[in-house]
Design a protein around this nucleic acid. Structure first.
Lengths: 143, 143
DNA sequence: GGTTGACCCTATAGTAGCTTCAGGGTGTCC
DNA sequence: GGACACCCTGAAGCTACTATAGGGTCAACC
């Protein structure tokens, strides 16, 4: 099949497919006489795998790691489990970070007591003077 | 003060300060005879404001909106409250998304029943065959 | 035979928010 | 005058794409 059909079947764009090829996630397919990419079912399966991983917010490095493991089908699946467990841990960390962030934001929001002037607004004053001991270094790739 | 001291006081890097200037968040300071940037306390206050907003995961657009409001100190602070409320809503949405993602991941993780071969692993099989009706479009700038 | 339209190709630039690097100038101490 | 910390600009790199420019291919229709 040609790239347009592949993309449709995997629910992504043609540009994304070409991008994955350049990024080394999807192997380069054969070409027709007119230089069109020509894909088979194995390509579709691999692309679906990649899209599913991406839908689960894995990075390309994580996907690459999984694909590397899948390409050794007789080896045991401990590595797969490990990648997933680490990814779940990333998600957990990010949820905790965001919950803490929300608390900070709600507290900040409450420091405005309905004044009229921006000058007197508790939010603006806090943002201007807060010493950022509250800095959080992002622990994961999840923004 | 020079850029190095400013950066130290605001807990960021010199490069970040120059980047904020180019991005239009921090006004261009005066220059010394040897073309060094020369900052005053107003610059420090503004930089701290920006860094605090960024520590709260606001985008540059959100920060720009807040700075625009702050620069009209007599106007009322309803706009500030609105920016904050919207940002809190973004954070809420992202927390919900991540919780749902975690559920998917945990379910996927449980589909491995301790097989040895990658080929038979329920995780790998799911990732290869799942139809991604579970696709989630990101609703916010928070990754 | 010409042309329309859907599809394909490559290469490049843009997105956010920085970080890093190359290649230089400045200022002060010893 | 040499070492070293600091400053400057401009461009490239990061992630995971998306978009754009400028072209080639193929089948159908008139």
């Amino acid at each position: 099949m040609k790239i347009g059909e592949l993309a449709r079947l995997a629910q992504c764009t043609v540009e994304t497919v070409r991008y994955y090829e350049k990024a080394g996630l999807l192997p380069s397919p054969g070409r027709t006489g007119s230089n069109y990419r020509h894909y088979g079912d194995a390509h579709l399966a691999r692309l679906r795998f990649i899209r599913n991983c991406r839908a689960l917010d894995m990075t390309h490095d994580e996907v690459r790691a999984l694909l590397g493991l899948v390409d050794q089908p007789e080896s045991d699946c401990g590595g797969v489990n490990r990648v997933l467990d680490e990814h779940i841990a990333h998600v957990d960390v990010r949820i905790k970070e965001l919950k803490q962030l929300k608390q900070q934001l709600v507290a900040l929001r409450q420091s405005c007591h309905g004044e009229q002037a921006v000058l007197a607004c508790g939010i603006v004053q806090s943002l201007a003077t807060m010493e950022t001991e509250t800095r959080h270094e992002r622990q994961t790739h999840l923004g």
